[in-house]
Design a protein around this nucleic acid. Structure first.
Ligand SMILES: [Mn+2]
Ligand SMILES: [Mn+2]
Ligand SMILES: [Zn+2]
Ligand SMILES: [Zn+2]
Lengths: 140, 140
DNA sequence: AATAAATTTGTAATGATTACAATATAAAAT
DNA sequence: ATTTTATATTGTAATCATTACAAATTTATT
C-alpha cells in the first residue's frame, strides 16, 4: 500500500521509536502487503516458512509494540476476532458474513455528529459494518 | 430502560419465539436494568446469589439465543472484550480508556455516507469511539 | 402417570492470549 | 577484541473466555 521498501521500513520503524529487528521488519512488511486485515495466526503461518525460528510470542509482542507506538491499529469487528491494520488513516471496515472477508471503505468519520458533550475527549473513532459482499450476493 | 415488568418480559420473549424460562427472564431483566453493557462474567456474578444453581453455560446459551433472535446485540469495542446490549436501537458507544465504562450516544449512523457500492448489502452498522470520559478527565 | 421434548447444568475440551524464564542477539564499555 | 550490559526472541506453561457434550432436570404432551 505505502510502497515502502525494506530499507524504508527500517527507517519508518526507527522514526517511531522501534528498533528495527529482522522479525519486526518482516512482520510490518507482511502487514503492508496484505489487504485483508490478518489475524495473528495468519501472520505467523505466512512467515514461519521463511523464518523457521519465529515464535508466535514474537508476533504477539511485535504487534502489541506496533499498536503501542501507534503505527498499526487493532480491528475488532465481532466477538473475539482480533485483526490488525497497517492503514491507520481514517476509514471504515465492512465484514462479509458469508466469506468473512474484511473490506475497507471511505467515510467521513470525523464529521459524524453525536450528542456527546465537549467534555468527552475522543481519541479514536471506529466504524464497522456487516452484511454480504458483492461477490457473495452474486452466488446467491 | 424499557420499563418492562416481569410479566411483560415473559410476553416479550414469547413474541420473539423464545420460551420464557426463569433463567432467561432473569438474564433479560438484568440486561434491561444495567446501563453499562455487561460482560458474561458480570451477568453471571450478579445472578448467582439469587439463582444458586445457575450455570455459566446457561448464561452463554441464553445470550447466544437472544442474539440469534435479535433481541440483544453484541458489543465489541476492543480486543477480546465482549459485552451485551439490550438496547438494539441505532446508537453509538464510547469507551473510557481510564475507567473502562461504556457510554451510549446518539448518532445518525444510518446517514453515514460511504464509497461502498450499492452491491454491498449492509445488515448492521456499529460505531465505536474511545477516549476519556468527563469524570475521568476532571480527576486529571 | 407415562412419555417425549426442551432446558439447564457440570465437566471437559478448545483456542487465544499472556507470563515468565532461558537463550540468543545487539550495543556499550573496557 | 573481549567483557559487560541491555534488548529481543524463543519455548513452555499458565490463564482466561468460549464451546462441546452428555447427564440431569424441568416442562410439555399423550
Ligand atoms: Mn483497514
Ligand atoms: Mn448501548
Ligand atoms: Zn463475501
Ligand atoms: Zn472514565
Amino acid at each position: 500500500m505505502k510502497n515502502l521498501k525494506m530499507d524504508n521500513i527500517r527507517d519508518y520503524l526507527m522514526t517511531n521509536d522501534i528498533k528495527p529487528s529482522y522479525q519486526r521488519i518482516r512482520i510490518y512488511e507482511y502487514l503492508m502487503n496484505s489487504y485483508d486485515h490478518p489475524r495473528v495466526d495468519e501472520i505467523y503461518k505466512a512467515l514461519i516458512d521463511e523464518i523457521p525460528t519465529l515464535s508466535k510470542t514474537t508476533v504477539y509482542n511485535t504487534l502489541n509494540l506496533f499498536i503501542e507506538k501507534g503505527i498499526i491499529h487493532m480491528v475488532t469487528i465481532e466477538g473475539t476476532e482480533v485483526r490488525y491494520d497497517v492503514d491507520i488513516s481514517d476509514h471504515g471496515h465492512f465484514k462479509c458474513d458469508v466469506c468473512g472477508k474484511v473490506y475497507d471503505f471511505k467515510a467521513d468519520i470525523v464529521e459524524i455528529e453525536t450528542n456527546l458533550g465537549e467534555s468527552f475527549i475522543i481519541n479514536q473513532k471506529d466504524l464497522f459494518f456487516r452484511g454480504i459482499c458483492p461477490s457473495c450476493s452474486v452466488k446467491n
